[in-house]
Design a protein around this nucleic acid. Sequence first.
RNA 1: GCCGGGAUGGCGGAAUUGGCAGACGCGCUGGACUUAGGAUCCAGUGCCGCAAGGCGUGCAGGUUCGAGUCCUGUUCCCGGCACCA
Length: 847
Amino acid sequence: MPPEDNTATVRDERYDAQRIESKWFERWQQDNSLYAAEPTSTKPKYYVLEMLPYPSGALHMGHVRNYAIGDALARYMWMNGYNVLHPMGWDSFGLPAENAAIAHNTPPREWTQRNIANMKAQMKRLGFAYDWSREVTTCLPDYYRWNQWFFLKLYERGLAYRKKSKVNWCPKCATVLANEQVAGGFCWRHEDTPVEQRDLEQWFLRITNYAEELLRDLDKLEGWPEKVRIMQRNWIGRSDGTLVDFDLGGTVGPAGSTITVFTTRVDTIYGASSIQLAPEHPLVADITANKPELRAKVEQLVAEQRKAREVGDIGEIEKHGVNTGRFAMNPYNREKLPIWVANYILMDYGTGAIMSVPAHDQRDYEFAKKYSLPIPVVIVPRASDPEETVAEPPLPFTTFDGTVVNSGSFNGLDCEDAIRKMSEHAEQKGFGKATVTYRLKDWGISRQRYWGTPIPMLYCEKDGIVPVPEKDLPILLPENVDITLTGGSPLGRVPEFVNTTCPKCGGPARRETDTMDTFVDSSWYFYRYADARNHQAPFDSNTIGYWFPIDQYIGGVEHAILHLIYSRFWTKFMRDMGLVRNDEPVARLFTQGMVIKDGAKMSKSLGNVVTPDEMVARYGADSARLYSLFAAPPDRDLEWQDSGIEGIQRFLGRVYRFIARHAPVETQLAASPSAASLPPEARQIQRKLHQTIKRVSDDFQGRWHFNTCIAAIMELVNELYGVEEKIAQGTIPAQLLAEVQRNLALLLAPFAPYLAHELWEMLGEEGSLLRAPWPKYNPALAKEEEIQIPVQINGKLRSRIVVPADADDGYVFDRAFADEKVKAAIAGKQVVKKIIVPGKLVNIVVR
RNA sequence: GCCGGGAUGGCGGAAUUGGCAGACGCGCUGGACUUAGGAUCCAGUGCCGCAAGGCGUGCAGGUUCGAGUCCUGUUCCCGGCACCA
């Protein structure tokens, strides 16, 4: 609090953000009901939600920006008479950054709860209008219970299954490493310890069952950025092709073994000159069984592949292969093809085996050149005259626009016909079929961590895998676990947790010690918000029917793939089990840009983190929020500049001081004064006000360029400062002045709520600012009476004329030609063309 | 390599459908008020030029009366994915 200075005039009153914000913070602590969504309402509903931008370890300006957008929208919708649901929840949010980085290991529960309390206090201090009664904390027992319940439902439907999968393993840490934690083949904490690949039994969710629907429904998501839809489409990666079995003639593997390849170009199969296997293909082990030399070469290929994958430039890998000396038979022409193992074939795409057609595939071509394999041509460009076929296309010739040759009974077909007929042929003969593959893989949810929802499964020696009965939920984490960062699953070292009895036979059983990926939490948390206190079910379907789909989801583009695919999957699964009626969780999605400092993403390691606490202490919450919206359009990255936020603080000060000086003694607001009755200065202010309301409102409906609508409010304030002398002279009617100030407070309400509430009170308004309706503009009052029109000669600006806004074209031309500068410019020349864009410009073309 | 986004003053950014390029803010310059100013208010500020005027939206072309905006080619930057068969 600044010292009271009774001698100071009103004129010198300071904008003291700390004082104003503390005052309202105290009041809002008493009354949260203001922001609570109504349980039943005849109003239209609006559900707005933010998703946490990374890193989520500690509150940073990226979060402030994220919430500033959502909060402004929530307040705007509220003031426009919507029943707004704007919840806030917490998951791994609250972990220190170091721990978050190692996949949510080890936070003691008290610590986490304390930290979440801390975060909540910070968010409140920033003035975000959440419905705190809807709070959901995903890492607490109540939420675990429903996660586990869902898992059982997934398991019942065959959508959860267990399989072996490869993981990165550091023998020194004795723990699983994320790809991020592997640096150059070594553990990030032990630079001398090479990372091993281990097979681990893990739980997976069969999201690939929904691949086709997830892909198809992207077309329905018109409120999503095209960018995100494209990313998801590529991620799901549908490709249509054919599976073909190549017979091994009993030379490899058990009798009757075949190699199945996947190809999108079965029409080129007569041009295959070899079979290429992924180094990790199961048959490779068989082939190299008693050939140490060959085995060593294959090991080399595996190593190369893994290294390239880590570095992230598998595309740049030098193509290597090794001939196994074995053969497989092309079922179409019974030709024997050599089997190779190659480092550019991936086991986790398609079948891990391809047919190599060098004449018609870029990679195969390079490979065949390198190892001097034959390059038979089977597709030629389509000839206009069937008599003259081009025998030698430029290689590799990879287009679909061609004709099949040298392919037995399929000769002469177009590629697309050939693909269809040859697939049918394979199916008839029983050695293949047309098929669709997806790049999308099933979702591995097992984590060998302490912190997370325990997977509710048991292992009984007699009954095998047994789900925990629903009545026994939730399975909670044991307390007082000795948590270290190493040594594998922490729960595995707690016998009281692990050892239990089988619900089927009553014999001894072992609990699953893996916990769930936190993406499970975030896949349905927004449903729980709508019905957070439900103890009978995860949520009530009718309540969900009212609130869903989410009207607006706001978050960083880093969630475009994983989170947003998982939650779409979860919604479809819940729909299929009859729990929800909507096919998609989110109607509109907005991806906001990152907050950047000194040209780099804010991060602790770079030491360029700007913390909200610091900003609030120095400039106030309103300034911090307003700046995060003003400095760039919200979908673009934002470069944080301290001098910029000072400018915003200055602006808020200007607003505050203006109203402190001119707050009306009494407010009796009739309609806006009629335009004709006002002197020009007053009319100008009135016009500007209505134009500003229009601009701000339009931006909320449309493209959300809050930077420009804040600029518009600044222009209005500048305009007001420009007429202060007139106000003193009484030229501006008190009624208009009152109208302007009242609307100024309302316009600021979504962006700078603390100040807006203070202004509202200073203006003598009764009742809450948020219960006041959003101002409407009057198009007639927003209209200009006179406009300035640029006059161009041959497209170059030569003069400007002022005409009435509704002047007809003939009048405007007359005025233009009467203009001295125009006269001078066209003197002695011939006018060949006259162009007018009504209300915009005049262009005279002369020669 | 593929997909997506971007490039505008000293800086962040405006210009919503092809129609006055640089709104608004920062910074800078000058002035007023002041014991003082790192408070506040006012004015100026794309570049070259004394001026008239000319030049200006990554680069090179094109379409048009008119292009930051549309088309063709090209360079660089950011994000994502990646030997996808």
